[in-house]
Every structure is written in C-alpha cells, then in structure tokens.
Design a protein around this nucleic acid. Structure first.
Length: 467
RNA sequence: UGUCCGAUGGUGUAACUGGCAACACGUCUGAUUUUGGUUCAGAAGAGUCCAGGUUCGAGCCCUGGUCGGACAACCA
C-alpha cells in the first residue's frame, strides 16, 4: 500500500547550463555567486536569436538569484553606432529584463586592458609585429599545417614596449603594426597561433573619442571584461568554443585571484524559413528590400514587436526551445504558436473588412438600423462588450464569397446561407456584376428571427463570417 | 594527416547516481463552437548514427568507426 500519496516530485529537468551552475554552486565556486551578462556588439539590431540569449542570461540570473549585466562589446569603432546601442537597450527592456545599474561598455576597460597588454610585453608574452596583415595571415598556416614564427617574435622587451607605446601615441598608420600574444605558432588551435591583441585604427570611438588609436581585439577584451565585472558564467554561442583556450590563457597570464569567469557555449537559434544573419539583415535594410529594421517581415525584435508579438510570447518561446549544444532549426510554427497562445487569451476582438464587397439586404427596412452587442474577447468575459450598428447595407470580405464554390467552402455563395457574426443569418439571392463581369454587390435576404439572442438564434448554418 | 564540438520521432528538448524513451510544436481523427479560431477527447510517429565491449540491465559507461558543424579578419 502506498501510505504517503505523495508522488515523485515531477522536478523540472535542468538544461546543461543549469547543471553546470548547480554543480558550481555545490562546490561553492566563486562564493556561490551567479553573474551573467548579455554582451552585444552595437553593430545592428537585435533579432529573435539574440532574444534567446537575453532570455537565457537574464533568466539564469533570475533563477539563481544572481545578476545579469548588459555590456556593449564596443571594441571596433569602425562598425558601431549609437543608434544600435539605443535600439538594443530598448529591445532588452521591452523583452522585460532589467540590468538595473549594470550597464557597461568594453570601452570602459580600455585603460586596464592597455595596462594588461604592457604586462604581457614585460613578461615576454607579447610582441609587436611590423608585418602587413596578409603576411601574418600567410604565416599562420592552415588548420592542418603549423604556422611559422614571425621574424619580429624575438624582439626585446624594451623594443616591444617602446613600439607599443608609439602605436598608442599615434606614431604609426593603420595596419603598420599589431601587438600579438606570444603563444604557439604550431598549436593545432588556430586561435593560439600568436593571436593579434591590438590593432591600429585611427578612427574616433563613440565613447572614447580620439583618446585611442589602438583598439583591443575581441579575444583580448572579452574574458578580461567578464573578469572585471565579476561574471561567473560567460555564456556565448558555439562558434566561440574554439576561442575558449585563449579566453583562459589571458586570465591565467593576467590575474592571480581564485575567482575566474567560465565560458560556456550553446547552439544559436535557427528558425525555419528565416534569415538570421546580421550581415544579410543589414543588407535587406541597406538595399531597401524592407522598410527598415522594424519592418514586420524582419525577424528583429523591433520587427516582431511591430508585427504584434508580445514580450511574453517571445519569452515563452525561448523557454520552450530549450538550450543545447547541437545545431538546430526550430520550426517557425512554434514561434507562431507562442504568439497565438498569448494573444488568444488577451487580445481584444474586433471585426474589420479589408477587401470589401457590398451587401444589400433586400428585406431589411430602408432607413432602419439597430445596435448589436458583441463580446470583446470570448476567452475572457471581463474584457467587456461593445455595440455594433447594423443596417440594410453592409460590407463583407470579398474572400468570404464565392460564386462557384468548391465542395468544402462554408461561407457565402449563391443560394446559400451564412451567419453574420453577432447579427443575422443571411442568404445570397442575387449576384450583381458590372460591365466587365466583376462582382460589385450581393443582394441578400435575412432571417429576422436569427438575430443573436433572438428566437431562432440557435439555428445552425455552416459558416459564420465577419462584416 | 590537425584541433574542438555534436548525433534521441517531421522539428526541438527531456530521461536525476545505468532501470519499460517523456514533453512541446507539427500532423491526423472525432466532439463542441456565432468566424475553418479556441477548447476537449484520441491517434499515428523514434527504440536513441554504426559496430563491438562492460553489466542482470546501456540513450546514458568503455573502445573503434561513420556522419555533421566550427576554426586559417588587424570582425564579434
């Protein structure tokens, strides 16, 4: 006998990131803090794929009583614009998340990053390379062949330091020098073959102005930024997986504390029939194929918003698709299901005719009109009712009438009846056409007893249409 | 001839320290319905990439393959 009728806790299963976090928590890693971040580069508008990442990062912070920062990864002034940072903040807020006072920019850390670069030079772990990009690229080898070392790799610390300072001071033109980490040109991981740390860019930065003409690369900025912000779990997409050894290398060589952020990768969202690449979306906007980033056909957050998606529906969607490391293509039908589910519950219903076809109800008295009552939301009576005027002449949707209907057509056709929603059952008696044979009007009769609430209101007909 | 990652119904995601493969979307059937929606009831659909091994027992562990993805910007 089962004395305790308690069932086994249905215990919601954890995704792989939650499992990692819970293990870290059990081990009291990083003082059992959970601190994530959403780190977009402000070079475009956010799309539904970013929404997945936002829901993930902010959601994890909420679930584990932690925090989530918003950080702009603005290390490349040639691609970034204020318009994008504004839109990103708006979209994140609209989705329902709050970074509170934790709004950061990678550019906030340029001084510290620069100091770290000098430290690497002093430790003999970084050097200035005078070769052009093409040469460096050539020397890097291929994934299956080791690279060769730069002729500048053995420069003295003093020479490197002086050169790097001159780079910073603007003594050199773009592309003439870079600072590189001195790691291993034979590494099977391409990213460990003396990656570039700093490049010269005589381009003013939206936030630092003319202060800098050298800018750190993503790899040199990201992990350290995570560190500076106290991030514990740095969640990014799969393509950065191979960068992880480098992410760890900088931390290992730059900091001495026990605390360390950890990079975790997940598979980005792909949606069926949907273009998601930032580059292509930018092209659609720039070439004028769409009206803008908020064109309702765009998969951007702002486009979805304009299209009528709610934040709740997108959050539910993000929840439902889960998170894993295998490549995936989510059926867009799931996104659509999410918005229908939400809107069905809370959208106000009204009737509207987009493509009108005139109806004259021949047995309805001329000059008469009456007021009919309609519910605003059949799913929720508390949303109230409204009154709609009805008279001898009304309009229905062209598509709701077919002169020669196929077998399963349930709407209006010659000699057939339909119900006008919230009104009467009408019957099509005559089709009026113009000289070109186009249907311009339908002459119908109505059954006065079938008004909603009336004596024959329950009489069934196959179809109900709006008007 | 490299390194890293992945492989479970049509699509996604689960299966807690190995124990009858579950949930959602989609599809199909039926009922209800004043919009072919919603709601409700039900069904079909995978034996977990392959081959070995360990085990009473493997989707989970081990070995070896196969297939797919990522990596050769002074992009992120």
């Amino acid at each position: 006998m089962n004395h305790s009728n308690e069932e086994k806790e249905p215990r919601k299963s954890l995704n792989f990131i939650e499992s990692i976090i819970e293990e870290d928590l059990r081990n009291n890693k990083n003082d059992s803090r959970v601190h994530t971040r959403f780190p977009p580069e402000p070079n475009g508008y956010l799309h539904i794929g970013h929404a997945k990442s936002i829901c993930l990062n902010f959601g994890l912070a909420q679930k584990y009583n932690g925090k989530c920062n918003l950080r702009f990864d603005d290390t490349n002034p040639t691609k970034e614009e204020q318009e994008y940072v504004d839109s990103i903040m708006e979209d994140v807020r609209w989705l329902g998340f709050d970074w509170e006072d934790r709004l950061f920019y990678a550019s906030d850390y340029f001084d510290q990053l620069y100091a770290w670069a000098e430290k690497l030079i002093l430790d003999g772990k970084a050097y200035v390379d005078d070769q052009p990009a093409e040469e460096i690229s050539r020397q890097r080898g291929t994934p299956t062949r080791p690279g060769i070392e730069s002729p500048f790799r053995e420069r003295t610390v003093e020479a490197n330091l002086e050169l790097f300072r001159r780079m910073k001071n603007g003594d050199f033109p773009d592309g003439s020098h870079v600072l590189r980490a001195r790691i291993d040109m034979a590494s099977p991981n391409m990213h460990m073959r003396d990656p570039v740390l700093y490049r010269i860019l005589h381009t003013p930065h939206d936030r630092t102005g003319d202060k800098w003409c050298i800018y750190p690369m993503y790899d040199f900025a990201h992990g350290q930024s995570d560190y500076l912000e106290g991030i514990t779990h740095s969640i990014c997409t799969l393509e950065f997986e191979i960068h992880r050894p480098l992410y760890d290398w900088f931390l290992d060589n730059l900091i001495e504390t026990e605390y360390r952020p950890r990079q975790i990768e997940f598979a980005r969202l792909n949606l069926s029939y949907t273009v998601m690449s930032k580059r292509k979306l930018l092209e659609l906007v720039k070439e004028g194929y769409v009206s803008g980033w908020d064109d309702p056909r765009m998969p951007t957050v702002t486009g979805l918003r304009r299209r009528g998606y709610t934040p709740e529906s997108i959050r539910n969607f993000a929840d439902r698709i889960g998170v894993a490391k295998r490549d995936n293509v989510i059926d867009v039908a799931l996104l659509e299901h999410s918005i229908r589910e939400d809107l069905n519950r809370k959208a106000l219903r009204v009737m509207g005719v987009l493509d009108p076809l005139k109806i004259v109800i021949t047995n309805y008295p001329e000059g008469k009109s009456e007021e009919l009552e309609a519910v605003n939301n059949p799913e929720d009576e508390s949303m109230g009712r409204r009154v709609i005027p009805f008279s001898r002449e009304i309009y229905i949707e062209q598509g709701d009438f077919m002169e020669d209907p196929p077998r399963k057509f349930f709407r209006l056709s010659p000699g057939n009846e339909v119900r006008l929603r919230y009104a009467y059952i009408i019957k099509c008696e005559e089709v009026v056409k113009d000289a070109d044979g186009r249907i311009v009007e339908l002459r119908c009769t109505y059954d006065p007893d079938t008004r909603s609430g009336g004596p024959a209101a329950n009489r069934k007909v196959k179809g109900t249409i709006h008007w």
